[in-house]
Amino acid sequence: MFLELYRVHQFIKKFFIEAIAPPYEGREILRQCYQVGYKSLALISLTGFITGIVFAKQSRPSLAEFGATSWLPSLVGIALLRTLAPLLTALISAGKVGSSIGAELGSMKVSEQIDAMEVSATNPFKYLVVSRVLATTISIPILTFYTAFVGLLGGFLNITSSESTSFSTYIQTSLESITFLDITSSTIKAIVFGFTIGMVGCYQGYNSSKGTEGVGKAANSAVVIGMFLVFIEEVIATQITFLFRT
């Protein structure tokens, strides 16, 4: 247990040392951003849109009891931006991107491709790990705001099915309750989630062993540990944000 924690600590420390020191893997980071971001768009769009519809539909009866259905756009906006969008994006990314990184690096490890990189005078940690962790750290916050936007569209679809309101009015009402603290905390949270997902996937893959069994285990652990840590971080972030709010 303590040995594993020490290894994780060393891995994170090495990440920061390699990330700061030149040369920088700009092209590979961009390629990984494309892999993480663009290729997750379809799934994130669908999930975000459906979440917006369902959340608006489920919230309407409760608000209707107090005659407060006019608050529905604000409620959808706040819920999406503060929690749903960062959490949904992180969970989907942990499943799709985390497992992919874990399996890819695990497979490269057991087939000696990482060793091959090392003996050909390439720093595999910088090329494989640093680029992927930076890509998830950059892409997941962008995806988070995209999810929030798509979720708002879903909410709008549900609301216009029951009452007539223009899109601009809906967006304006949705966003008027959003504060600078909401945007800042969501951004920081998404950055932390992105870093965590990338780091867990890379750690599990880079340190996998025992052949194909190890590759499967690395992919599985990347998802399970990634999601678990995202939930823990969500709880901590909510507590810290609450302190700033009061």
């Binding site: 497979s107 490269m108 087939s111 000696e112 491709q113 060793d115 091959a116 003996v119 005078a121």
Partner: peptide
């Protein structure tokens, strides 16, 4: 070590070609 590795080639048992 990086400079030295440029002067030493290593052919792996399973070739270790980059799959992607």
């Amino acid at each position: 070590l990086i400079k030295l590795r440029l002067r030493v080639g290593f052919s792996f048992q399973n070739s270790a070609l980059y799959d992607s």
